[in-house]
């Protein structure tokens, strides 16, 4: 399917970037990044609920937590 192939190509482009990473900021410049308002939360209880709601009530899955379907009955 062409759309899927295009997305796969985009994924290929992303992969090498992720493998290298970039050192852009010194540790003493990270004060604002440590602000509570800047924290990427990982509350697993909320991830669990959001996965169930969005995965079962929409036609797409993935991107919330690290699984994308399975192990959860459909409502």
């Amino acid at each position: 399917m062409p759309k899927l192939r295009r997305l796969a190509l985009v994924g290929l482009l992303f992969a090498p970037l992720a493998a290298t990473g970039c050192h852009t900021v010194e540790y003493y410049e990270k004060q604002l990044l440590s602000d509570p308002a800047m924290g990427f939360e990982t509350d697993p209880t909320e991830v669990h609920f959001q996965q169930k709601v969005f995965y079962s009530m929409e036609g797409s899955a993935g991107g919330i937590g690290d699984s994308a379907g399975g192990g959860c009955g459909c409502y």
Partner: peptide
């Protein structure tokens, strides 16, 4: 590689 609440992403940034 744990999920991030609510938003459509993963990765818990170690710096945070």
């Amino acid at each position: 590689v744990e999920g991030v609440e609510g938003a459509e992403t993963t990765v818990a940034p170690e710096a945070q």
